[in-house]
Structures are given as C-alpha cells and as structure tokens.
Design a protein around this nucleic acid. Structure first.
Lengths: 207, 207
DNA sequence: TAGATTGTTAATCGATTAACAATC
DNA sequence: TAGATTGTTAATCGATTAACAATC
C-alpha cells in the first residue's frame, strides 16, 4: 500500500489561486513568469510561492522562472483537474438557478450533469440546459453516474438531510451555499460559500 | 489620537461563523451554550473559541457558559453590525441577478440599495425590487449615498476598472465574484467568491 | 458546597519569511 | 561569463492547543 503524504491544506487551497493567476497571464499573452511576478500579481511573497510549489516538485528554471503553460499543466495535474468531473446541483432557487446558467465550469475542470429540486412545481421544468429532477432520485443518480462533487443550494433547514443523501450516493466533495455548518464523516470534504460572512468580516475594519 | 489594535484577521474571519452558529442555536430554541457545544457544532476546538473571544472581552460566566442572545449581540457590535449597511451590486448577469433576488441580507446587517450594469438592453429594466442603473452613474451614486460595500459580479475583464470606480466613490469593502485578483489601495478590503476554486481544492483529495 | 466552564498562560505546533548556494 | 531566479534551509513569526486557577 502506498503511503501518500498530503501537502498542508492551506497550501492546497492556494493552488487554484495560482492557477487563476496563470490563466490571466496566459490570456495576457505571457509565456514565462517568475515567483516574483506572480507574487506581485497576487499580493503575497515570492518565497511563499516557491515554498508552496516545492511541496509538489520542481517546476522552474533557475535564472528564467516558470513556463506559464507548463506550470498550469502541472498544477492541474496535482489537483486532478486533467480530467473533467461531473457535478450535481441541488436546490433550484435563485442561487441554484445562477449556477445552472453559469458557463465557467467546463474551462476549469467541471461539468454540471444534473440539477435537482423537491418542489413539484419545479420538477420537470427546463432551467438552462437542464430538466429539473426530483430530489427523490438524487441518491441513485449520483451513484449510477459515479459523481463525487455536489453544489448544495437548498434552504438551510434542508441542507443537512440533502448532504446525507449525497454522501450515501458516493459524493465526497460538497460546496455548501446554505449558511449552516454540515456534519459529515471524515472522508467527505465540505467548503462553504457565504457571501454575507465575507461582508461581515470586512465590516469589522470599517470606521 | 486613539491607537486601535485589531484582532488577528484570521480571528475576525471566524466571528461571522460563530454568529451563524449562534443564529442556528437560537432558531433551535437554545438560550445558553458553552465553548464546548459551539466547538462540537463547528468541528473546531473549544480552546480556540475561548481564545478568539478573549481578544474582544469577557462574554461568558464560569460554570454556565454564554447567553446565546447576548453573545450574538456582542459579536454583532464588534463587527459593526448593530446598524444596517447599504450595498451596491454591479453586473446583472446570472450572479448579479441571483444576488438582487436574494433575501438573506437584511437579517444579517446589509441592504442592497442599487444594482448596476453597462448593457443598454439591461439599463432601466426591473430586476427583483430594483431598476437597473447605468454603471456610468456608479461613482456619484455610491458617493451620494455614502456606500462602503459593493458586490462585484461583472466579467473578469471589467472587474478591475469597476473596482477603481467603486473606490473612487468611497467604497472600502468589495466582494468580488469575478475569478481575478484585484489590485487596490491598502485601505480597501477585497474578499473573493470563487466556487470553482473551492471545487478544485477539494478535488486534490479525491482518489 | 460540588460541578462546570470560563479566561488566560505557557507549550506546542505549523506557517511564513529571509537568505543563499546552486545553476540556468 | 554575468545576471537572474530557483529550490531549500534555517530563523522567525504567529496560531492552536493543553492545562488550570479562578469563580459562578
């Protein structure tokens, strides 16, 4: 059995940020960059970038820096983004709707393959490219399609029970838009999107 | 001149999370809680909660714990949420639309007071309770209404120039939905909402 | 009072930064 | 070669945890 030592979580969380910056650089026509240039771009230190990357290997050339295309490719590989992952969305309110219409997933490694709601007036309706399915069929759907990722946009009071269903079907990565903390087994990851929490945090520093 | 020493940023960022948990507890009819109960709820250590709170004062009773209502009130005060803050939304695509329809702001200290876009086919249209205004009038609007908060939901290529306008009008807290890093002066805070980055981070741990 | 839980101190742990030899 | 920048080490800095006296 292979013992696989993960990099620190806080480092892993910065890799998508680096990827985002590299995409912007590529769009700007840059072919080569340096830890210093990336650092200026992101407002962090160049040492941190080099240290972070050193957890995964050596990707640069002394005196020259990094190939933008190559570093992107390597980071995508590290994050397992060198394939496309199917994702389901549960909850077709405002937020679920916006997600179902959002076109930015494919380019970055994901594809929404199904959207769900438990409201009879929504089930069967078209939203964007999708027909809304009944949440009652959620477990079998994620199981049959081998889905690991879900975006959860149901009201707070239903978030935990829907999360339980997703996990039963095999989902291990949940992006939770409901402003409530989920309790999940250790093999499941949850990340939270709570815009108001960000506004509240920034407000501490005002006046 | 008063020298005001801020608590660590990482601690400030957890206060909204505590506030969220306390709201859930209040909704569940709890009147009193403890650092241990909050910790279990959130999946962190009770020592961290007590240490975090100790940056701001003493809010509990030995042997008893914390009054849910009182701790909420104190945290709201610390975060300057004991008033309602006006917010503008710029960019009326999918995401801006969802934000304009979202009803969860008021309860947590914010009120959307204006929505903007630069697309002539959208300007003047009703979206939720709002009439879409021309981005050309953004600077004067935020200045006249003394607005400090903005949510930025324009395409990535326009995010920086709109941010510059917001800042010129006096905005100091920007919640950026565009997957691009903004460069801003030191008195301005930016937080990022990038759902795909969260999905990418979680994907590192899969398989 | 006895039991429970706070607020705080000190120890531990981990992350960031500075510095530089290696080398393209 | 000379200049630039990496990858890495060691030092610093900061955050988390454990432990417990204080006290409700």
């Amino acid at each position: 059995m292979t013992i696989h030592k993960h990099a620190p979580d806080i480092v892993v969380g910065r890799l998508p940020v680096y990827l985002r910056a590299l995409s912007a650089m590529q769009a700007a026509g840059k072919h080569v960059t340096s830890s210093q240039e990336l650092a200026d771009w992101l407002g962090i230190s160049s040492a941190q970038i080099r240290k972070d990357l050193s957890h995964f290997g050596e990707f640069g050339k002394q005196g020259t820096g990094y190939s933008v295309a190559m570093l992107q490719e390597r980071l995508r590989h590290i994050l397992h983004l060198d394939r496309e992952w199917p994702v389901v969305v549960v909850g077709m309110g405002n937020i679920g709707n916006a997600i179902a219409h959002y076109t930015g997933f494919e380019r970055r490694g994901f594809r929404v393959v199904g959207v769900f709601d438990n409201d009879p007036s929504k089930i069967g309706a078209r939203i964007g490219a999708f027909v809304v399915q009944d949440t009652a069929s959620l477990i079998s759907f994620v199981r049959e399609h081998d889905i690991r990722h879900a975006m959860l946009a149901v009201p707070a009071e239903h978030a935990q029970s829907v999360a339980d269903m997703l996990i039963e079907g095999g989902v291990v990565a949940i992006l939770n838009y409901a402003p409530i903390n989920l309790v999940v087994p250790p093999h499941v990851r949850v990340e939270y999107i709570d815009p108001v929490a960000h506004l509240q945090k920034m407000t501490y520093y005002i006046s």
